[in-house]
């Protein structure tokens, strides 16, 4: 060991008191425990989805897959409704997120500049955080507007969140220097040009954050479909997911009540149903986790800048 390294190590030892070392030990223990609590349920779902259904039912699968098989995934390929929901949700998420991100960025830039009525417009946005019409008046209003059982309700409901708008505005205010606007205004650029040529290119980080926020909200939205949609061809993934999970639940309850070991067919049906639950959960959750991991690079930074009050 070189002398220099020794010195560094020594100063480290001096710096750390016994109390701090105990603290570090407890700190890491708690954090590792938290990581375990978060990851274990997810891990359990994944390993159960690729294990032999009989082993899962018997409660043998809890650390690693047993009897590795992808049968449950081939089984759900035949679930027609699931794929209808998947297709619908894909559309709602793509179209909805695009509209949400664009209109939020437009409003974020505009409300960060000086203009007549700025205070009024900000109040108009923020007030909706503290007071709203409530479920029933909102439902009746949307129905009067012709949005009941209409594809557009899935795009329009929740299109702009005040919270996201404020985060985006804070980001734009903090990260784009005012001199830049002045310079481009002197060069004769108007607000549209400034927005498209300066603000959008400089806001990649916050746009990534907005895509994640809005994308997840759309993908996971169950309530809007439940309230407004009746046409089964329009229902989103989450509604079908709920139906399938509930029906599989009742299959297994039904079979619980029978003397299942004498009825071979039921046992097999139960096993298939049981295995399908896990793979359905995996299939419907993976896209959002992947989106998050892709955007993760921007994510932490963007959220930090956006959430710090300027």
């Amino acid at each position: 060991m070189s002398k220099r390294a020794e010195v560094v190590e020594n100063t480290n030892i001096i710096k750390k008191t016994a109390g701090d070392r105990t603290f570090d030990f407890i700190n890491y223990t708690i954090l590792v425990l938290i990581l375990f609590i978060i990851l274990y349920p997810l891990w359990l779902i994944v390993i159960s989805s690729v294990s032999d259904a009989r082993e899962v039912l018997a409660g043998h699968v809890f650390l690693y897959p047993i009897g590795l098989t992808f049968d449950s995934y081939t089984e759900i390929l035949g679930y027609r409704t699931l794929w209808t929901g998947y297709r619908n949700t894909l559309f709602y998420t793509l179209a909805g997120t695009t509209i949400s991100v664009i209109s939020t960025m437009m409003a974020a830039y505009a409300s960060s500049r000086k203009f007549l009525g700025k205070g009024l417009v900000n109040f108009y946005f923020v007030f909706t955080m503290f007071f709203n019409g409530g479920l029933i008046p909102t439902f009746l209003t949307m129905r009067d507007l012709g949005l009941y059982d209409n594809v557009w309700i899935m795009i329009i409901a929740g299109a702009i969140s005040v919270w996201n708008l404020m985060i985006a505005r804070t980001y734009v205010t903090n990260s784009i220097p005012g001199e830049m606007y002045e310079a481009s205004m002197i060069d004769g650029a108007n607000h549209f040009q400034v927005f498209f040529r300066i603000v959008l290119p400089l806001s990649k980080t916050i746009i990534a954050v907005l895509i994640v926020y809005y994308g997840v909200q759309r993908w996971n939205d169950y309530f809007t479909g439940l309230i407004y949609l009746r046409n089964r061809m329009l229902l989103p993934l989450q509604t079908y997911l709920k139906e399938i999970l509930a029906s599989l639940q009742s299959t297994s309850n039904l079979i619980d009540q029978m003397d299942s070991y004498t009825i071979q067919d039921s046992v097999e049906a139960l096993q298939r149903a049981e295995a399908a639950k896990y793979s359905i959960i995996v299939i419907s959750t993976v896209p959002m986790i992947v989106l998050y991991i892709i955007m993760q690079k921007y994510f932490v930074e963007g959220v930090m800048i956006g959430s710090l009050k300027g």
Binding site: P41, I45, V216, W219, N220, Y222, Q238, L241, K242, L245, K277, I280, I281, S284, T285, M288, I289, L291, Y292
Partner: peptide
């Protein structure tokens, strides 16, 4: 990032 429906299912 996990939906309420999936959470309930789990």
């Amino acid at each position: 990032f996990i939906s309420t429906v999936v959470l309930a299912g789990m």
